[in-house]
């Protein structure tokens, strides 16, 4: 593919996350080759974490690429290598441990360690809980899409600094103390920035910057998302909804 075509596809993928996934799928051989250079062997799909990390590195490159800073593929290669080096350094302390995917013996049909181990948990119950969680998350994502939001957008809009996260949690706390604001959020589909800023003491500019994230967070604390609220146990001592 001509470089110009790649760049145009990359810029299209920035706007559409599914296009980004398609680009990753198309360049999977390139990603595998870069991973193989690092591993000194072909990566095994579904087993090697390195391949997943390399794919995510490619995805990151797509989302962050700037035409003025050079060609795309060399940058993607560099980013993949850097991310794999980071992963190697992070996981170096676990060197010498056995993989759960390792076979019990050298025979081809031998079961893996993971298959023979007793996980110690009730798989059926956990599967049922996961199914319920998935339904709730899909419902949550559906409601978000109703307001024109995607989970990836929210992840991109999430505060990275801890003090900004604290400010957002302060806004959430004020909103939970005033259910009227949550109802107003659902009914109007808009974040009541003025009232939240005035009540929580947080700068309106901060709320505006993280408007999408705050909307999703406040939406999670409306009725119907008990599992998600239960997961957010570290936000405040009060568990559950309002």
């Amino acid at each position: 593919m001509v470089e110009q075509d790649i760049i145009s596809r990359v810029y299209a993928a920035k706007e559409d996350i599914s296009e980004a996934d398609a680009l990753v799928r198309q360049y999977l051989p390139f990603i595998k080759a870069e991973t193989a250079k690092f591993l000194k062997r072909p990566p095994m799909e579904g087993q090697d974490e390195e391949l997943g990390i390399a794919m995510f590195a490619f995805h990151e490159t797509v989302m962050s690429y700037q035409r003025s800073k050079g060609a795309f593929l060399p940058l993607a290669s560099t980013v993949i290598r850097n991310r794999l080096i980071d992963h190697y350094r992070r996981e170096k302390r676990h060197k010498g441990l056995l993989s759960l995917n390792q076979k019990v013996n050298d025979e081809d049909n031998s079961p893996t360690l993971l298959e023979q181990m007793d996980s110690g948990c009730d798989n059926i119950a956990s599967l049922q809980a996961r199914h319920a969680t998935r339904e709730e998350i899909e419902d949550f994502a559906k409601q978000l899409s109703h307001y024109g939001l995607k989970l990836t957008d929210i992840a991109d809009n999430c505060p990275k600094q801890s003090h900004t996260l604290d400010a957002c949690q302060q806004v959430l706390k004020y909103a939970r103390q005033n259910p009227v604001l949550l109802e107003q959020l659902i009914s109007t589909g808009k974040l009541p920035i003025t009232a939240l800023a005035k009540g929580s003491g947080v700068e309106p500019k901060t709320l505006e910057r993280h408007r999408k994230y705050l909307f999703a967070l406040l939406l999670a604390f409306t009725n119907g998302f008990e599992i998600i609220r239960g997961h957010l146990c570290r936000i405040s001592p009060e568990k559950g909804g309002n």
């Binding site: 980004a20 996934d21 997943g52 794919m55 949690q169 570290r234 936000i235």
Partner: peptide, 25 residues
Amino acid sequence: GLSYAVVLDQEGRFLKVPNLGYEVG
């Protein structure tokens, strides 16, 4: 997604992380 996963931590952060064979829920 194929290469990414959006996860929610217990402090309310939405994070985009490498998808190492995860499933929703």
